[in-house]
Structure formats: structure tokens, C-alpha cells
Design a protein around this nucleic acid. Structure first.
Length: 572
DNA sequence: CACCCCCGCGCG
DNA sequence: AAAGCGCGCGGGGGTG
């Protein structure tokens, strides 16, 4: 059973029941903004799949009203996947998706078959038409999937991606528990007291004075790469850039304070007092998570640099009293994914244990784990120089199927072709740069075309691995979510309305064990101490399930590193 | 003034 | 110059 829900101008919604092909069962009905949460709760008892254009339309306010939903189909997220997927063979959905994403006046423009609805059924014809057009797109998505070369894979991807939309919204709603006082203490210790507006923190100012002295540049402005570069050159330090790793190569008294300054400056500008004031409220750091925000299918984030929380401030991420943070990290996901997708027997054998790199080192790199790791990362990223490139032939001899798979993906990219992940997410078309590269005349143009092709090859090479790893991670995440949801339902209602344990009276307790963070191959659950063993079991069984869902019986393990801690810095 | 690009660095 | 993949963000500096 599907229930389609679309927005109204007055904050209410239009709802309708749809069958398994997306065909309407009966007529849509209208629900006011006020009645919506209760209506949704009672419909949820039928265990429907909620169908909406985007999770943003309704889910945030449903969460605020204390409503959680089990499953959905997120038309916008699925549009992004299906419009390019090479598994979809009928071009009609891609055309529809192009119209929707490309023209601002859709859906009112291309009404077509629904014109007859105009005069009847509703007092608000335009919204009725929007509801019907949304239904039509949903039906078109189902048809595209059913007619694809692998409905099984696409259905899994659609379920995982839609569940990801729910998790992302829930994580944004909850926020990462953040101890503001601990963060301030840490800043004060490293940078000195919070400076007045327009001034540097004391410890940074002291380093600036020291550098000006050492470089005999009284007006040096270390925040300006140009200015800094000139000052370094005047003192015989012939760096080409002011990057850390390059500065490290030089021996000069100014290097140490300069590197220290850069470190402090980073903390101050990226996660200092103003960051705290902008992004942390009532003990929670909240950010927008953008599911499918990366071409490969990874998430991106908007606001506060949520996916770049530096190690140096992770001590401020703290469980509330009586709670713990469960931090689980999937080890070496990308090489394991490569082993499974390529069905490379040798690499799969190496991927059966806890440390894949060590196994590969023993198999062909004289036991050198670091060599094995550099070689494998180079193979997945497309290294062309240095140690990594030098080790490639040996790696290819050991694992011909695995290395063949990424090399084939690279060749396809170089030719301007597309590649796909295991579940069917496909690279977007190369676009104008590729067209231009086809019409080279001068040598310079040819050189740039070659450079573009190599770059595209590195992208497609990595895309299949990074993208499939993202699919595994979303399946893992969805599995954790549904297990925690079940745990929550079984948990005594004691926590309901109880804000004492949380210590922050204004925070709604919406469930006992919460997914609060996700970072590509790592998750964080915030849960009462007593529930932690169940959460660990949930996280581990979800990882096993994710491997089976994608790769069936393929003999590749996806082991986790699990830590139960009070603050994030204690993990790993 | 807004806008855009580059630089550098944080994360996986 | 470019440089092994994918991101977001803040600051500098130039442009209109």
C-alpha cells in the first residue's frame, strides 16, 4: 500500500491511496495542517509506504509533532538516480525527469491528461493537479524500474536512498550532542581567551609577532598566501605554495611557528567561537544533510561543515548523563567493495579477515602492509606517479579481476562513456567539456583534451567503488534505523516526556536510541547506557545484512570497529 | 557593495 | 603546471 502526500498552499496536504503500480485507489482527500500529524499517525498503522516529492515537505514538522515514519519513496531523490541510470532502458522517464528538473514552470506547464480534473473534485484545482502530476511521476518511476535491466538492484537502491532521506531528516532534527562548555574550554586552552571582535586570539597574535621578527617583515599578514609567499621568498625559503606539507620540507626557524599558526588559525576560523555561536544551540549541533549530494551517491552537508568535524574538537561531542555514544566504523570498505563487485577470488580471500591490507601484504608485498595499502588506494584513485603507480603491476598480477574492473571503468571514462555502481547509479553525462574535447585543432587543445580524458578516467574509476561503498553504507544505515526504531517501540514509555535524564528541559525525547551522525562509512548512535548492548547488536547485524543485500553469498566480510564512549574523541 | 575564483585545509 | 577520488567552508583578492 502506498499513500501519496502532496502539499497545499495553507500548510495542509492532499492524500491518496495508490496501488503497487502507482494507480490511484479512490479519490484524494484533503487534510488541514492542524489535523495532519494525527491523520498520518493513524494511517501509519496500515504500514504504508509514504510517497512524497521530497522528505522536506512534511517530515520535519511531523518529527516536531513526535511522529516517526517507517518507510517512504522519495520521488526527488529517486529522480536523481533514475534519470541517468544505465539500467533504465526506456527513455521516457529520463525525458520526464529532464522536463521537471529543467523547466521552472513545471508542473503547471505540461498538464496534459489531467486537465479534466480542473472543474471537479476539489475546490483548489491547481493543487489537485499537482497531486495528480506527482502521482504520474511516481508511476513513471515504478514503470522505469519494472522495465529496467535489473529491477531487483534498483528497488534496493530506491529503498535505501529513500530511507536515507528519513535518517538525514531525523539526524538534522536531533542534532549531534555538543558540550558547549567543553568546546569553549578547549578553545581557551589552545587559543587563549575569546578575543574582542576584529582581533586575533592571543596565542595567534604572539605567533604573528614571532614570524614578523624572524622574517624581518613587520607588516606580514600570514592569512594572505600572496603576502606570506613574498615574505618567505625574501628570506630564501623557496616554496612554491604555502601549503603545510611543502613548508615542512624546509629548515628555517620560521617554519615551526608558521605551521603552529596555521593550525590555530584553522581551529579559530573553522570551529572557533563564532562557529559555536552559529551552529550549536541548546547542546546540539544541527546541520542540513544532503542525501545524494555527491555525484557518487555519498551525502554532503550544508552548514557548519558537519562532515568535517576535526579530530581536535571531537572531545566536545559528548553523550548526555546516563547515555553513551556508540561509534561504529566500517573498516576498509572500498577495497572490500571492489573485491565483492569484481568477484576477484584472491582479493575476496584477503577481504575475509579483519585486516585486508595485511592479507594483501602477505600475499604479494613481502609483508609490507604500507606498500599494499598505497598500491590498492592508488588503484582505486588512479595514481600515475610515485610508489603507488610503481606497485600497480604487482597488484594487477595478484588480483587481475579486481584491477581489471577499475581499469575498465577508467578506460570508459576516458572515452567519454558512462559507468555505474553495483546498484545502478550512473555517472552524469560528461557535458560541454567532452563536446569541446572532440573538436580539437591546435596542439594545445589536444593536450587539454587528453588531460580532461585522464581526469574523467580517474573519476569513473573511483566512481564505481566510492558509489557502491555509499550504497552499502546506506543499506547499513537503513538497517540500523529500522532496528533502533523497533528497540524504541519495545522500550518502556518511561522516557516519554521525560527530559530529566537529558538534562535539557527544552529538548524533546523522541526515542531512546538515536542515530545522530553518519559520515560515509561511520555512524554514531546516542543511547541510554542500558540499551547499548542491543544497539551494538543492531549495528553489527545491519552490517551483515547490508553485505548480503548487495552481494548475496559473496564471501566478503564487512567488519566494524565499534567503540562505546562518552566523547567522540575516545573512539578510534 | 555583491559576486566569483583561488587557496588552503578539514573530513572520508 | 599538474599532481591519486569525492566533498564544504572561510578568507583573500580581484572584478564590475
Amino acid at each position: 500500500m502506498h499513500i501519496l502526500i502532496t502539499p497545499d498552499d495553507d500548510g495542509g496536504a492532499h492524500l491518496s491511496r495508490l496501488d503497487d503500480s502507482g494507480v490511484a485507489i479512490g479519490s484524494p482527500w484533503k487534510v488541514s495542517a492542524e489535523d495532519l500529524p494525527q491523520e498520518v499517525v493513524s494511517l501509519e498503522e496500515e504500514q504504508p509506504r509514504w510517497v512524497w516529492d521530497t522528505v522536506h515537505d512534511f517530515y520535519p514538522r511531523l518529527l516536531a509533532a513526535g511522529v516517526r515514519l517507517a518507510r517512504c519513496h522519495d520521488i526527488s531523490l529517486i529522480r536523481t538516480i533514475l534519470r541517468f541510470s544505465s539500467l533504465v532502458q526506456d527513455p521516457r522517464y529520463a525525458d520526464m525527469a529532464a522536463r521537471i528538473t529543467g523547466s521552472a514552470d513545471y508542473p503547471s506547464a505540461d498538464a496534459g491528461p489531467v486537465e479534466q480534473l480542473q472543474d471537479s473534485l476539489f475546490d483548489a484545482p491547481r493543487q489537485a493537479r499537482d497531486h495528480e502530476l506527482t502521482r504520474q511521476e511516481f508511476a513513471a518511476q515504478l514503470a522505469a524500474i519494472a522495465g529496467s535491466s535489473s529491477p531487483v538492484r534498483l528497488r534496493l537502491l530506491v529503498a535505501a536512498e529513500s530511507a536515507a532521506g528519513l535518517v538525514a531528516t531525523e539526524m538534522q532534527f536531533l542534532g549531534v550532542p555538543w558540550d558547549q562548555a567543553a568546546h569553549r574550554g578547549l578553545l581557551e586552552e589552545v587559543l587563549g581567551p575569546e578575543p574582542p571582535l576584529g582581533q586575533r586570539p592571543r596565542k595567534m597574535e604572539a605567533l604573528v609577532a614571532e614570524m614578523r621578527e624572524l622574517l624581518r617583515s613587520p607588516s606580514l599578514s600570514p592569512d594572505s598566501p600572496q603576502d606570506l609567499l613574498r615574505a618567505l621568498h625574501r628570506n630564501g625559503i623557496e616554496v612554491r605554495t604555502t601549503r603545510q606539507w611543502e613548508l615542512q620540507e624546509f629548515h628555517h626557524p620560521v617554519i615551526a611557528p608558521l605551521l603552529e599558526y596555521k593550525k590555530l588559525s584553522r581551529l579559530y576560523t573553522a570551529n572557533g567561537w563564532s562557529w559555536l555561536d552559529s551552529w550549536v544551540r541548546r547542546g546540539r549541533f544541527r546541520s542540513d544533510y544532503v542525501v545524494g549530494g555527491v555525484v557518487t551517491g555519498r551525502w554532503s552537508s550544508r552548514g557548519g561543515g558537519a562532515l568535517q568535524i576535526p579530530k581536535s574538537v571531537r572531545n566536545a561531542v559528548r553523550a548526555l548523563p546516563g547515555y553513551k555514544l556508540l561509534v561504529a566504523d566500517a573498516s576498509q570498505v572500498e577495497p572490500r567493495i571492489l573485491a565483492a563487485m569484481s568477484a576477484d577470488q584472491g582479493m575476496a580471500a584477503a577481504a575475509r579477515g579483519q585486516d585486508l591490507y595485511a592479507e594483501i601484504a602477505d600475499a604479494g608485498f613481502g609483508g609490507s602492509r604500507s606498500s599494499a595499502k598505497v598500491a590498492l588506494l592508488g588503484a582505486m584513485y588512479g595514481a600515475t606517479t610515485g610508489e603507488s603507480a610503481r606497485l600497480m603491476p604487482q597488484l594487477k598480477k595478484l588480483y587481475p579481476a579486481a584491477i581489471g574492473l577499475v581499469e575498465d571503468a577508467a578506460r570508459r571514462g576516458e572515452r567519454g562513456e558512462s559507468v555505474s555502481t553495483w546498484l545502478g547509479r550512473t555517472t552524469p553525462p560528461p557535458g560541454a567539456a567532452w563536446e569541446a574535447a572532440q573538436r580539437t585543432q591546435t596542439q594545445e587543445e589536444q593536450r587539454r583534451a587528453d588531460s580532461w580524458a585522464r581526469s574523467r578516467g580517474r573519476f569513473t574509476r573511483n566512481f564505481i567503488v566510492q558509489g557502491t561503498a555509499a550504497e552499502w553504507a546506506e543499506c547499513w544505515l537503513a538497517g540500523i534505523r529500522s532496528r533502533l526504531h523497533a528497540l524504541g517501540a519495545a522500550w518502556p514509555k518511561a522516557l516519554e516526556g521525560d527530559t530529566g535524564a537529558a538534562g535539557s528541559s527544552s529538548w524533546p525525547v523522541t526515542g531512546p536510541a538515536e542515530l545522530v551522525f553518519f559520515l560515509h562509512d561511520e555512524i554514531m548512535v546516542h543511547a541510554p547506557e542500558g540499551l547499548i548492548p542491543d544497539c551494538v547488536e543492531a549495528v553489527e547485524s545491519a552490517a551483515r545484512d547490508a553485505g548480503r543485500l548487495l552481494f548475496g553469498t559473496a564471501p566478503v566480510d564487512f567488519p566494524l570497529t565499534v567503540a562505546v564512549v562518552d566523547s567522540y574523541d575516545q573512539a578510534k
